[in-house]
Computed example of a mutant assay.
Amino acid sequence: MILSRLHAPRAIRRARLTVASVVLASAALLAPAGAAAQGMGDPTLAQTLFEEGRRLMEAKSYAEACPKLAESQRLRPGTGTLLNLALCNEALGRTATAWGQFKEALFASKKEGNAAREAFAQEHINALEPRLSKIQLNAEGTPGLLVRIDGHDIPAAALGTPIPIDPGAHEVEATASGYSVWSTTVQVGESADLKAIAVPKLQPAPPAKPAAGPQGPATGGGSAVGGGEGLRTAGFVIGGAGAAVLGVGAVLGILAAGQAGDAEKDESLCPDKRCTRRGRAEIDAAETKALVSTIGIGVGVAALGAGAILVLTSGRSGSEGAGAASARPSAPGRVQARVVPLLGPDGGGVSVLGAF
């Protein structure tokens, strides 16, 4: 009877399809318990959702029925449930979704040897195929290109091929690592519409903006700006400061020696090498200058040495710098250095702290 439906008048054909739908519903209700025994999901919940979905379909509440049937199929897959889900999506105008589900049910029916379900699925496939709307994605070559429709990845092999798609609005997005995202929205017609979408070659993504806040000199390759020019600049600054401090220390030393000598020779200040209170004050002042001179000379010499080291270090070639970086336990990415004066009761100096 089912095989002769294609030659029956339309009214008789619709009546027979209704009968077939009822048969499919009852077949799903009486499905063997083997599926549940295989641990495919909660059979009680799956059955409840199926019955509720069927009730909503009979009330023509397809938008509410389809999700329940879909969840029932997920919990306990069955050909009868799948055919009902396909009928529900077909009623909602989701032609591509229904077509795919009827195809899946057709293969399952052939495997099960159920000729009635096989014929039922094939008839709906034949009716839907002329109405299928499709989308064709034509993409230019972008390395690592990934195209999505409504968030679903489209295999590269499917690009350039018309793909059945449900009518309505769809979001097309193209992405690739290191490139800007491209997207567009396409409206697909209800019946036999073909939308060809040209996905352009993606543009390289703009460089990321530097984060706010203090930033160190950029590094890269075997010779970094911070590692070369930064060291050289720091060396000249520290060395120049050292030279200035050394000069001041030397001048103070000369003044201290002269002041002390003049006080000792002045009979009014230090008669017979015994200094008066005023003479003692002159000698103390000379000693203070001498101490400051000693500290200044020590700091100046140390700063000159540190500056020279920094300048010499900055003069290494790129390959030497790379070798030195690999030999160090860790490469911080930039060079930091600071000179810290060290002062004490008996003298002074400087210490260069940081990573080179």
Rank of each mutant, 00 (worst) to 15 (best):
A98M: 09
G323S: 15
E118V: 01
L49C: 05
P200C: 06
A234F: 02
E123L: 06
V22D: 10
S183P: 02
L310Y: 05
V350F: 08
I135A: 05
P162M: 01
R316L: 08
E282R: 11
I165R: 04
E129I: 07
L29H: 13
A174Y: 04
L92G: 04
A303C: 05
S180L: 03
A59E: 14
L194G: 10
R10Q: 08
P200A: 07
E282K: 06
F102G: 03
P210C: 13
A46S: 07
S177Y: 02
L255N: 04
R16W: 15
T18H: 13
P341G: 01
A59H: 14
R131W: 07
W182G: 13
I297H: 00
A98I: 08
G141C: 10
L6P: 11
G300W: 03
D262A: 04
Q187A: 08
G160C: 00
W182K: 11
Q203R: 11
Q259W: 08
S317R: 13
I295Q: 01
V352A: 10
S268R: 15
T294K: 05
G300F: 06
G235F: 02
G34V: 06
I125H: 05
L137G: 02
T288A: 15
L128P: 06
L106H: 01
T233K: 09
V181G: 10
A325S: 13
Q73N: 15
S61F: 12
G347R: 07
N114H: 07
G242K: 02
L291P: 11
A256E: 10
I12M: 05
A46R: 00
E58A: 14
K195G: 05
K201S: 13
F50C: 06
R148Q: 13
A234W: 01
Q122W: 08
L145E: 07
A8C: 15
V352T: 03
L24M: 12
P332V: 12
T185S: 02
H124K: 10
A139W: 02
D272F: 09
L310F: 07
D262N: 00
Q136G: 14
T185K: 09
L291A: 09
T184V: 06
N138D: 06
A157H: 15
E90Q: 11
L82D: 00
G227S: 15
T97H: 04
A96I: 03
V147I: 12
P207G: 12
A234T: 00
T79S: 00
D346G: 11
T95S: 14
E118T: 06
G249R: 02
Q38Y: 10
T185G: 04
A302E: 00
D150Q: 12
G344P: 01
F107C: 11
L310D: 00
G189N: 06
A234D: 03
P162N: 01
G305S: 04
G239W: 02
A286T: 14
L353M: 12
A176N: 05
P332H: 14
H170W: 14
F107I: 13
Y62Q: 07
A63I: 05
L82P: 00
S72K: 04
L353C: 09
P329C: 06
G78E: 07
K134E: 02
E320H: 02
A286R: 05
A20M: 12
A234V: 03
P200H: 07
A257F: 12
R76A: 15
S293W: 04
